[in-house]
Each structure stands twice: as C-alpha cells, then as structure tokens.
C-alpha cells in the first residue's frame, strides 16, 4: 500500500508539523439526551452523557479512551466521528470545526476519519460481497474500478484475494474484523477510530488483530483513537490515554505514567480491579482484588 503524504505537511513549518494543528480538538463538549417523558405535566428528564470534555489528540498519536459502561466513551466517539452533534462545545478535526456542520458538508471527514466497530458481524452487511463492502467508502466518494485497491487492502490486512468474492458469514470473527479494518482504510484516512475492536474476539485472535492494527498504524502513520474498557489493552496499544467516568475525562496523560502513578481515585480503582496473570500467580486472590478496588475508590 502506498503511504500518502500527511495533509497538514504542505506549507507548514517542517520543524513541528505534528504539534501545529491537532488531529482532534474538543472544547467543553457536552451532550444531553432527553429521556422519554414520564408525565404530561413535567418536562422530559435530561441525561447528561458528556459534561464538558476538552481534549487534544495530536497528529500521529495513539490515543486511548478507557472507561466502564455508561461513562460516555461511545457518545464521545460518535461526536468525534461526526455521527452525533454536541449540545454545546466545539469539535475540530484537523482544524475544521465540525460540531455545527450539516451531514452534507461532512464529506471531507469521511475521507479523513474512519471507524472500526466492536462487533464485526453487526457492522458488515451480510448481503454484500467482501469486495463491495471494502469498496463502499470509495463508491460513496464517486470512485469507480476499485478492485485493484480492494485487493491491495485485502493483502494489507492479511487476507487472501479469494476473500473478495465471499460473504461476511463465511469468515471467522477475527477475519471479519480484518475486513472491517480494510474497509476503514479504503479511503486512505489519516485518523482511525477503533471502538472496542477486540472485545468480541477470542484471546488467540485478539493478539493477531492488535498486531495488525499496530503494524498498519505505524506503516501508514495514522492517528489512532482506541476505545476500550480494558486498560491493559490500551497500555499495549496507546501512548496516551484519557480516563472517563460519568461523562467526564478525569485524567489524561502518557499511558505508562498513568499506569504507574494514577492521580485520580477512579483510575486507581480501575487498575486495582483488573486481574493480571503474573500477580495472580504470585498469590493475589479475588479477595485482594476486591479489597484493593474498594480501597482505591475511597482514597483521595
């Protein structure tokens, strides 16, 4: 696969093109959802899914977002990908504010940013052949004769060219996730957003897919935004991480720094709660996990 020139490189001072315009800049982003009304006489209750999130993700960074269910990480991702709009606040992708843009003006974003989802079966159309699935983002950009590009992408994600004429159900979970990755890479994006891409996979296949992502991000100099509930996966993949809980980012920093010395009680609880093979074999039981988690939650 050819490595495209980074779009911001032209006309920028060569010394620090990366730091000039962040790939993603969020300022005070909030998102309110209205619940169903429970009474005719009172307004519908409002759920605040995001509460003033500000983040900068630099070009070429491998950025992790970690948090438990309901923390707002999926809402944040949808807003970054332009699939949802914030209630207040601004979202800039490569310097362009997308927070108030209508769908018809988001075409540039679909070229620049692509997504890989958790469930590869749910995100691949079962009635489409793999070649059409992978070419779909190109077709929507008005490109024709995409087969050479499809074959190139299949090779890049480690699938045989015969895969092009088969359907998603003919593949295993790990292979389907490779197809999703190939589709995401088709329009040559600069930013790859992965939402729990390995959570539904078997352990032996998870390592293959993580290695593939690692290799592609490096080879294509992509900016990676990787969402997971599993801090150990984030630690392996990402150089920076934001920890979210209850719609807020409570801690941002270098992954290793946070892993070693978390500032926030919630982050410490998250680290304490995750069982690890080495420490478990050294004698850390479920009782220790529970006690450490509770202690970390209550610490300040």
């Amino acid at each position: 696969m050819t490595v495209p020139a980074a779009p911001q490189a032209e006309g920028m001072p060569s010394s620090s093109p990366a730091s000039a315009v962040p790939a993603v800049r969020l300022r005070e982003v909030t998102r309110d959802y209205r619940r169903q009304r429970t009474s005719m006489f009172t307004p519908a209750p409002v759920v605040r899914a995001l509460r003033g999130v500000s983040l900068d993700i630099a070009q070429g960074q491998r950025f992790g977002i970690v948090g438990e269910s309901g923390c707002g990480k999926s809402t944040l991702l949808r807003i970054i990908a332009g699939l949802d709009q914030p209630t207040t606040g601004s979202v800039e992708i490569d310097g362009t504010d997308i927070s108030r843009l209508p769908e018809r003006r988001l075409g540039f974003l679909r070229e620049r940013l692509q997504l890989v989802f958790q469930d590869p079966m749910g995100s691949l159309d079962p009635r489409m052949k793999v070649r059409d699935i992978i070419a779909e983002p190109l077709v929507s950009q008005g490109k024709r004769d995409n087969l050479p590009r499809v074959l190139e992408l299949l090779e890049a994600v480690g699938l045989q060219s015969e895969a092009a004429d088969r359907y998603p159900h003919q593949f295993s979970g790990g292979q389907r996730q490779r197809i999703s990755i190939a589709r995401a890479l088709a329009p040559d994006p600069r930013i790859l957003v992965a939402d729990e891409p390995v959570s539904a996979l078997d352990v032996s296949v998870r390592a293959q897919v993580l290695n593939l992502l690692d290799e592609l991000v490096e080879r294509l100099s992509l900016t990676l935004i990787f969402v997971s509930h599993d801090l150990s996966v984030i630690r392996h993949v990402c150089d920076s991480v934001a920890v979210m809980t209850r719609g807020e980012v409570v801690e941002v920093g270098a992954t290793e720094q946070i892993y070693q010395q978390a500032e926030h009680a919630y982050t410490r609880a998250l680290i304490a709660a995750a069982p690890r093979l080495r420490t478990a074999l050294a004698g850390r039981t479920a009782a220790d996990l529970a006690a450490d988690t509770l202690a970390a939650k209550e610490s300040r």
């Binding site: 295993s172 979970g173 790990g174 292979q175 078997d202 352990v203 032996s204 296949v205 998870r206 390592a207 293959q208 993580l210 290695n211 690692d214 290799e215 150990s232 996966v233 630690r235 392996h236 690890r276 093979l277 080495r278």
Partner: peptide, 25 residues
C-alpha cells in the same frame, strides 16, 4: 503455551508485537 503467550499483553516479541497463535478456532 500459545494461549498464555497470546493473553499476556506485557510479554512481547523482540519486534514489540504480541505472541500469537496462527489461524483461528
């Protein structure tokens, strides 16, 4: 052995990648 290697995210090959089992179940 393969399963333990692939599960252990703290253990990487010399090139920094994870140990894997080829193919799928």
């Amino acid at each position: 052995r393969g399963l333990i290697g692939a599960s252990d995210l703290d253990l990487t090959r010399p090139d920094g990648r994870l140990y894997t089992i080829q193919g799928s179940v």
